[in-house]
Amino acid sequence: MSFDVVNPGILTLLEDSGRIGFQHLGITTGGPMDEHAFYWANRLLNNPPGTNQLEITFGQLQLNVNAATCIAITGADLSARINDKPVRSWCSYAVKKGDTIEFGTPKQGLRAYLAVKGGFECEEKLGSVATVKREKIGGLNGNGEPLKQGDVLRFTPHVNVIDQRAPKWTIPHYDAPLELGVMPAYQNASFSHDEQMTFFTSAYEVSQNIDRMGYRLSGAPIKSRLDGIISEGIAFGAIQIPNDGQPIVLMKDRQTIGGYPKIGCLSSLGAGQLSQRSPGQSVSFSPMDVADAEVERRLFNRVIFG
């Protein structure tokens, strides 16, 4: 009734839909970097949308199966194999006692998601199992640590086969050119027309400095008329512009407040697409109306939540 962790991989975290309602206490939401892939993994298994699963960054995870169940794999192509046989992402699979599940190195994208029917059994902290290492909260043992060798992931066995595949139109291509919509917000008015034009007409490169807190981009610098601001609450996808003019997109494990001017904010689905890009890949931005972002999300929610 469990998976044994033989190799935890580079970074494998237990995540659910996030820790909601505690940012006023300085506790960030956490949760899946790529919500699109996360929610589709649960949908393929007919799990409740927020059911916990594994977020596998850069691969190398190896699990031994101790009981029959069904799994779903979505997100990045990390060369997944079951019993040393290559398997496709965005599909569900039946596994049984004695099977092995392994991930290799990335072929496309950075983060894969592995869901199990019914989710993994672990204790919630502040209403969630989302792992936030910086805050030492969540995860298998509640202390914010990633999976480690020897961990045991318990679940309720499931013998009925679930054989589903995500529709082709839902599957992103993580090597395709990425243009993301930016909603004007925060200190947008403090950036001159010329600075905004520079931002929206330039291509930025994903730097080596990326993690679950933020994605630092490199490219044409932009400047705000403000030297700084009073620290304020910040959302997933907010785009900070520090003194060097290089944008930083704030991600799921971001700090809850920040004092740099922000030119705008990505939608949660847009930020999820960025989270699948590797250092060296290119991203560009275009203006986006809040209403367009709302429509995009409502259409997504209609598919996922019904």
Rank of each mutant, 00 (worst) to 15 (best):
8 P>A: 03
9 G>Q: 06
9 G>E: 10
11 L>V: 11
11 L>M: 15
13 L>H: 04
13 L>G: 01
13 L>F: 00
17 S>V: 09
20 I>F: 15
21 G>L: 03
21 G>Q: 04
22 F>M: 03
24 H>V: 02
25 L>W: 07
27 I>Y: 03
30 G>R: 04
32 P>V: 04
34 D>S: 06
34 D>Y: 04
36 H>Q: 12
36 H>F: 12
37 A>P: 04
40 W>M: 11
43 R>K: 15
47 N>V: 03
52 N>S: 06
55 E>W: 00
57 T>N: 10
60 Q>V: 00
63 L>W: 07
67 A>Y: 02
70 C>Y: 03
84 D>G: 04
85 K>R: 13
86 P>L: 14
88 R>C: 11
92 S>T: 12
101 I>H: 08
103 F>W: 14
107 K>Y: 02
111 R>S: 01
114 L>F: 05
122 C>H: 05
128 S>F: 03
133 K>V: 11
139 G>W: 02
141 N>S: 13
144 G>D: 04
147 L>Q: 07
149 Q>C: 03
151 D>P: 09
155 F>L: 01
157 P>F: 12
159 V>Y: 14
165 R>C: 10
169 W>F: 03
169 W>I: 06
170 T>K: 12
173 H>S: 13
175 D>P: 01
175 D>R: 09
175 D>H: 11
182 V>F: 01
191 F>T: 06
192 S>P: 09
193 H>N: 08
195 E>P: 07
197 M>F: 05
197 M>Q: 14
202 S>D: 07
203 A>S: 13
204 Y>V: 03
204 Y>D: 08
205 E>A: 09
206 V>R: 10
211 D>H: 14
217 L>Q: 05
217 L>A: 06
218 S>F: 12
219 G>K: 01
220 A>D: 13
221 P>F: 02
222 I>K: 07
226 L>C: 02
229 I>P: 00
236 F>W: 13
244 D>M: 01
246 Q>E: 14
248 I>S: 05
256 T>G: 02
256 T>P: 01
258 G>V: 07
258 G>Q: 09
263 I>K: 09
266 L>Q: 04
267 S>D: 14
273 Q>W: 11
274 L>A: 03
274 L>F: 12
276 Q>R: 05
276 Q>P: 05
277 R>L: 12
278 S>F: 10
284 S>R: 15
285 F>I: 01
286 S>W: 00
287 P>C: 01
292 D>Y: 00
293 A>N: 07
296 E>W: 06
304 I>Y: 02
304 I>M: 10
306 G>C: 00
